[in-house]
Design a protein around this nucleic acid. Structure first.
Length: 423
RNA sequence: GCCCCCGUCGACUAGCGGUCCAGGUCACGGCCCUUUCAAGGCCGUAGCGCGGGUUCGAAUCCCGCCGGGGGCACCA
């Protein structure tokens, strides 16, 4: 039988990175096995938010490249079927009515066990299993009843979910057995934690896909990073493309212990991916990102600035702070400007105003003044970019153009900024 | 309280009885390169939770303890 898995978020808002991790592992497993990955929205409550949240979830999954097979389904659409099954259980004596609700009989002795795909054999004592409510007094099926029924109806072969579901598994197994339905395989993934060992939450940093996106991470980096949380290929491979991940992902290499989300490592990986992008693609990402973030900077200038920053920033978000001086004149900074007048003279004579010529002129100037390159260039950098940290000075000067560069060096020149202002 | 899961460097992990006085990556420290910052190169600090077993031999198997997490709803 071919593999079929499902990812079943509840439409409460943005996709939490922990849930995305679960979705990713389901997806990788399905794709590796050549099976199907389904998307199911567990919306037992009809709230107005559902439509938006559902759209949001899909958008996040699409951005990450986690596609799904078939139409997405809604738990709500299966309520009637669930009630029918409950009625059948009632008729067959597997369930009974209790104050208007329908409860399913659970065994009192023995154990309920299964071979967990990533934890091995797990046993749960049956005397801890209470007769659980399948359908509430108001007619709404409960999660623990609806979920396994849907897995059954959808032909789900492998249920990969968070470890917080471990204690639900014996209940669901008993339900399925009472229903006479086949059992899927179960695998419980470990949680993703924050650096304090607690469940990842807002105070640790970004937690939703949208936040990571807004903070300038690119999907292939997040994808790769998430895959390495609780899974590894071997003892030395870290950077893997989506295709390699699909090809190499197997459940037997998924770990059972919780992993801490290391933001520093994600930054590094994001930088790796950013640097590896072809220049024009890099520029495209930058342009798209800045547009999404509300910057109306000149696209052509952004593209020309792209090569100056690619080697230097780890997230797209750093661009505005790092290269913003190209689009708006920075605040005047107090500088030790002893070399500035001479630099202005030297630059004024450069023609055409291109980086290699600029470099030659400035190096010649430094030598003439007996200054180390660092000491000669840093004041210029400060005057022109407003910061002691910037893209390469010569290239930056070229992009700004002679007039604007000289104006900035003069400290109060004429001429406006070469681009429009931010936000 | 009861039940279940987990436990290798600060972090992610490799390790599935000997080839491990434990390997890789991030972070951290040092050096090199260098117009700043990055990137890159080289070097380094750092770990098998504890105690018993089993075995010629244990990070690897068993038991106990300790620690962490999750679950015990007419929530999902």
């Amino acid at each position: 039988m071919s593999v079929r898995v499902r990812f079943a978020p509840s439409p409460t808002g943005f996709l939490h990175i922990g849930n995305v991790h679960t979705a990713l592992f389901n997806w990788l497993f399905a794709r590796h096995e050549g099976g199907e990955s389904r998307l199911r929205i567990e919306n037992t409550d009809t709230s107005r938010e559902v439509a938006e949240a559902t759209e949001q979830i899909q958008e996040s999954l699409r951005w990450l490249g986690l596609d799904w097979d078939g139409e997405l389904t809604f738990q709500l659409d299966r309520m009637e079927r669930c009630r029918e099954e409950a009625q059948r259980l009632l008729d067959e004596g597997h369930a009974y009515e209790d104050e208007g609700a329908i409860r399913i009989r659970m065994p009192d002795e023995g154990v309920t066990g299964w071979t967990d795909l990533i934890r091995g054999h797990i046993e749960y004592p049956n005397d801890k299993l209470e007769d659980l409510v399948a359908v509430r007094a108001d007619g709404r099926p409960t999660y623990n009843f609806a979920s396994p029924i849907e897995d059954w109806l959808d032909g789900i072969t492998h249920v990969l979910r968070g470890e917080d579901h471990i204690s639900n598994t014996p209940k669901q197994i008993r339900i399925l057995e009472a229903l006479g339905a086949p059992l899927p395989e179960y695998g419980h993934l470990a949680n993703i934690l924050g650096d304090d060992g607690r469940k990842l939450s807002k105070r640790h940093g970004d937690v939703t896909v949208e936040e990571f996106r807004a903070d300038g991470y690119i999907p292939e980096a997040l994808f790769n990073f998430l895959a390495l949380l609780g899974w590894s290929y071997d003892d030395k491979t870290t950077v893997m493309s989506r295709e390699e991940l699909v090809e190499r992902f197997t459940l037997d290499r998924v770990g059972a212990s919780p992993a801490v989300f290391d933001y520093a490592k994600l930054d590094w990986l994001n930088g790796v991916y950013l640097r590896a992008l072809p220049l024009d693609e890099y520029a495209n990402r930058l342009v798209t990102y800045l547009r999404e973030q509300g910057y109306d900077w000149d696209e052509e200038l952004v593209r020309r600035a792209a090569p100056l920053v690619q080697e230097k920033i780890a997230t797209l978000r750093e661009f505005p702070a790092f290269a913003g001086f190209l689009f708006a004149r920075p605040e005047a900074t107090a500088v030790d400007g002893a070399v500035l007048p001479a630099a202005a003279d030297a630059l004024g004579a450069v023609e055409p105003f291109e980086s290699d010529r600029i470099e030659a002129a400035l190096r010649e100037l430094a030598e003439r003044l007996g200054l180390k390159p660092r000491d000669a260039f840093q004041p210029i950098r400060l005057a022109v970019t407003g910061s002691s940290v910037s893209p390469g000075l010569f290239e930056s000067l070229e992009l700004l153009g002679k007039e604007e560069s000289l104006a900035r060096i003069a400290g109060s020149g004429r001429g406006g900024p070469s681009g429009s202002s931010a936000r």
